[in-house]
Structures are given as structure tokens and as C-alpha cells.
Simulated scan of single mutants.
Amino acid sequence: MILMNISNYSGDLEKFEGDWKNVEGFLEKHQLDGVELICYEKDYLDTLPRWILKGLHLKYFPTWLEFYQNDMAKVSEMFGGMVGVRQYYGGTHPDTLVEAFRHEYQQARNFEVEYMVYHVSHVTTEHSFTRAFDYTDDEVLDATVDLVNRAFDANSDVQLLFENLWWPGLTLLDRDKAQRFLDQINYENKGIMLDLSHLMITNPKLKTAQEGAEYILDCIEKLGSLKDWIKGVHVNLSLPGDYLLSDHRTQYQEILATEDPFERYLKTVGHIKKIDWHVPFDHPLVKNIIDSVKPEYIVYELLAKDYESLDTYMAIQNQAMGRI
């Protein structure tokens, strides 16, 4: 099954003139079977044709570990007071996260999607620039196990797929850590959503799409039998090595000096976009990756500024996959 990512955010739907029928036409044009949705509020949901909805990308809080561990002094400092904390998490108690994911889980069941995607990672704004992490993969994985086991019932037809990132958490660079994590998750219908860009970002030495593909194939080989847990693949490309290896401390100081919260947010998002590109994986070796994994779900997770750019991206990705 080959899908594309989309959200019900107005900025995304404006590419399709706010009409899901245009999305359906786009899917047909590019031989796609449906969408993986990120759901914001309730916009456009009343006209969403359920047949195209195959997966739900769950809510993601990049910074959540300190909050879940009830270190409110640190969290309050990071978000400029408890008002900022409430705005970010939707509450001021750690159980807010449990409730948020329970809601997402119920929404996935109501939508009757086939799978959900859960980001397994944690990073503070500061550390996204400095990479001077004061938390480990194991700490993030253990806290995620606790949160997931509290928020999700153990039995459901909806698959729960855990996505790798390049920050501390599930990086897929350590087979034993990843296997231990999955073993501790009580949810039975579970697996991995392999994000190709996120895996490439773990190696800033990569310069070309071919090098990226060869690196991914090597990482998959090192996973051994854990490879069988990969049920889905987010297909995209990122080669931000030069940017990753540069010094971003001045950028971070500029953000700290920015008084407007929304402006700070935009600057941080701009930084992340320079790392995680979401452009087509335009090398034919991408098909070798897919053939190696044999996933149930292939998701073209691409971001474009307008319809024309997205249309071009999809054509490029289909060509690299040998579909046109």
C-alpha cells in the first residue's frame, strides 16, 4: 500500500482548494492508495472521505520528558512560566500526556485507520541547536514505555508503529535497545515505522542520495531479525551533514533574545527544516531499501509549498521507485 502524508491543517488543504475531492484526484493521478493523516482540531473532518484514510500520525511533543517526570521547575523555565506550559501540553499535570494519547488512540479507532504512528524521541529547543543532551536513549525509551503502556489498551486491530528519529530515543542504531523497547510495550499489535530521512540524519558524513541509501541498507542489515518489525516506511531524503556539523549556538542565542513566542517558534521550525528536508528520495536504490524491508505501508512523506511543487515531488518519487 502506497500512501502520502497530509494534514487537515488549512495550510495543507489550501493546496487542494480546501476540497478532499481534489485530494482524491491527486491520489489517483499518482497511483496512491490513500493518506496518513496528522489531525489538527476538527477542520475539514466532516467532509473527509474515510476510504482514503489509512493511517493516523499521532500528536508529537518534541519536548516532553521533563514534564512527564514532573520536573515543573525546569519545564516552567523552558516555557516561560506555567501559562506557556499549559499552552504547549494542554495542561499542567504529567497525566495530561496520557490523556492526550488516549484521545488520539480513540480518534484512530473512530476513524477506523489501519495504523497509528508514534514518535519515540525527546529534545529540548536548546539541545536541538547545541546537541549537548543531558538525557540518554534509554531514559527516553523507558519513559515512552511507561507512557504508552498507560495510554493504549493492550489489544486493538489498529497497529501502533513507532517511528525513529535522530535525537535521543528510538534511533534504530542499536538493535538491542530497540528490541528491549518493543519487548516492554504491552500493546500487542505493534511495529516500527522506519523514516529514511531520520536515519540518514544520524550520519552527518553522508553527501549523496546513493551514500544515504547504502547507509540505510547497512543499518537495516545490522538490525538482523528486528527488521521483521518494520511494518511501514516514510520515504523521503535528507542530507544535512554540513548544516549539522556547523555551530548553531549563535542561532540559539538569537532565539533566546526574541521576545515574541510565535517568532521564536518560527525560527526553531526553520532550524529543524534545514535538518529534516522532506524532499523526494530521488535515487533508484530507494527501491532496494523497500525490497529489503517489504513493508505493508509505504508513505511518501514529502513537504512542498504549493500544489505544483507537491505534484512534481510525487512524480519524482514514483520515478525513483520504478512506478513510472
Rank of each mutant, 00 (worst) to 15 (best):
V233D: 03
W277K: 08
T96W: 00
E104L: 10
D12N: 12
P261Q: 07
E211W: 02
F111I: 09
E259A: 12
A315G: 08
Q251Y: 08
S197P: 05
K231Q: 12
M72G: 00
K267D: 02
I216R: 04
T258N: 02
L196F: 14
R150M: 12
K29R: 14
L45Y: 05
Q317G: 04
V286C: 07
V233P: 00
Q106R: 13
N155C: 11
E188I: 07
L182T: 01
K205P: 01
S128Q: 03
R249H: 14
L13N: 03
V117M: 03
K267A: 03
L245K: 11
E188K: 15
E254K: 10
R249M: 12
C39S: 10
F152K: 02
K54F: 06
V293T: 09
L27E: 03
Q253M: 14
E114R: 05
F281H: 03
V83P: 01
M4F: 15
P49I: 13
S246D: 14
L32Y: 02
T312G: 09
M116A: 08
Y68R: 05
V148C: 06
L37A: 11
I272Y: 06
L3W: 01
S10C: 06
E28R: 13
D12Y: 13
I290D: 12
W277A: 12
R50K: 15
S246N: 14
